[in-house]
Design a protein around this nucleic acid. Structure first.
Length: 424
DNA sequence: TCTGGGGTCCTAGGACCC
DNA sequence: TCTGGGGTCCTAGGACCC
């Protein structure tokens, strides 16, 4: 039986902000989504106030003022860099690590004599070396490791202090514990499934673990059947170390303000497509179809609504920004209608395949290799000199559609001019 | 006034074929 | 009034995750 650990950073974005700004320690902190729209991270103090994930900022201005909540725009450059450092330290504790998200990873602890001691040491080292508090959940399957992590974080068991090992419990202790946790805490059980399960009398994790797997498959899907097995300690989800190439690449944003004009939409989409093409080349893929979408603000019920998308096939799979920009513009031309106030747009690269097996387009008169060398050069320049040093079609930066980010912290670890200073 | 972004997997149902 | 059956492939949409 495998032993898996799930490690994640507590209130990760808030903790990242606190690393370089100690004044944020012990006070309520929130980090906002793009455009300063919703809450995407809450410090414990804010969670204690009952603020839910995803709450729009404008709905809590009062609370912010009353409790002196510190409000921050998201700084993904900082979080990404601290994530890399955190993952590197965690990776020292096992030969097999699967990085699952910016703040979470699985480790293989199979065969380790004292997993609890190992987990405690890991926790101490990440705190000391990176400054991020983490919790460790340990179990015989990914789903149980995730659940153990939840137990560790909430202190749901006397032995759970930042670290919790599910397998260390006797089966009667396991029953009692799972009987006290809502089924909605299980990985893969979202709000819809939780509600539906409750209709069948399945309210706790224990209820779900003891449900008939075949029946669950029939009522829901093979995913639910797997979840039941995982809760029983039968590992169905493998630990994967290699980050496989993405099957789709999406870049989309809400605008800083509503947009009506075609030219502005085109600029915004060109900027998103440029970024998408960079991501595509970074994973050495090519795309053969591009989906473009634009939409109005669904929350403005009085406004005429439009929510449309179109897929533009490419004659030949490509990773060339110029070709992809043409496709984005062609898509927009199809979709655009005047008289609407657009709030968001995006591009989605579909049908990704490896760039190494690309087939030449018989009708392409552009020498493919020269195009590739050009793209490589552009990517290298932008990587070293900063994003958008070189770009196509030269959209002016800082347009009306660009994001709002009124409370952004500095890029302490990735920009020379924004390094923290010990004394000023 | 103000409501994120980027993914994955699964299923149902239609199109199409023989 | 009668109007096959089974397989495959593709797409849209749902549900979930962080």
């Amino acid at each position: 039986m495998p032993t898996l650990a799930l490690i994640d950073g507590n209130n990760f974005y808030c903790s990242c902000e606190r690393v370089f700004n100690p004044a944020l320690n012990g006070v309520p902190v929130i980090v906002l989504s793009n455009n300063d729209g919703c809450v995407v991270a809450r410090s414990n103090e804010v969670k204690d106030l009952g603020v839910k994930m995803g709450t729009p900022l404008f709905q809590m201005v009062d609370l912010v003022r009353r409790h002196g909540i510190r409000v921050l725009s998201s700084n993904y450059t900082l979080y990404g860099d601290l994530s890399r450092r955190m993952m590197a330290v965690i990776g020292q504790f096992s030969p097999l690590q699967e990085i699952y998200s910016i703040d979470e990873c699985f480790l293989d602890f199979t065969g380790i004599a004292d997993v609890r001691a190992r987990a405690l040491a890991l926790r101490r080292r990440v705190q000391q070396w990176v400054g991020i508090p983490v919790c460790v959940g340990i179990g015989p399957s990914k789903t149980l490791a995730k659940l153990a992590n939840h137990i560790a974080k909430k202190g749901l068991h006397p032995t759970a202090v930042g670290v919790f090992d599910y397998a260390a419990l006797s089966s009667s202790e396991q029953d009692a514990l799972l009987g006290r946790i809502s089924v909605s805490e299980v990985w893969g059980i979202g709000p819809r499934h939780a509600l539906s399960l409750q209709g069948y009398g399945i309210a706790t994790v224990k209820d779900l673990r003891d449900a008939d797997p075949r029946l669950m498959r029939r009522r829901y899907s093979v995913v639910m059947e797997r979840t039941v097995a995982e809760l029983r300690g039968i590992a169905c989800l493998e630990l994967g170390e290699v980050v496989s190439a993405k099957q789709q690449i999406m870049v989309s944003r809400s605008f800083g303000m509503l947009i009506e004009r075609y030219a502005e939409l085109r600029e915004a989409l060109a900027s998103y497509m440029t970024r998408a093409a960079e991501k595509l080349r970074a994973q050495r893929s090519v795309t053969s179809a591009v989906l473009v979408f634009i939409r109005t603000n669904p929350f403005r019920e009085g406004d005429p609504q439009r929510h449309v998308s179109t897929t533009v096939p490419l004659a030949c799979p490509s990773d060339d920004t110029r070709i992809l920009l043409q496709a984005a513009t062609a898509g927009l031309r199809q979709l655009y209608r005047p008289g609407y106030r657009y709030q968001k747009a995006g591009v989605l690269l579909l049908d990704l395949t490896s760039a190494l097996t690309i087939q030449a387009d018989l009708f392409d008169d552009r020498p493919g290799e020269r195009g590739q060398r050009l793209m490589q050069t552009v990517d290298r320049l932008n990587r070293h000199m900063g994003r958008d040093t070189v770009r196509f079609g030269a959209p002016n930066v800082r347009q009306r559609w660009t994001l709002r980010a009124a409370h952004k912290s500095r890029c302490y670890t990735t920009r020379w001019d924004e390094l923290p200073s010990a004394r000023t």
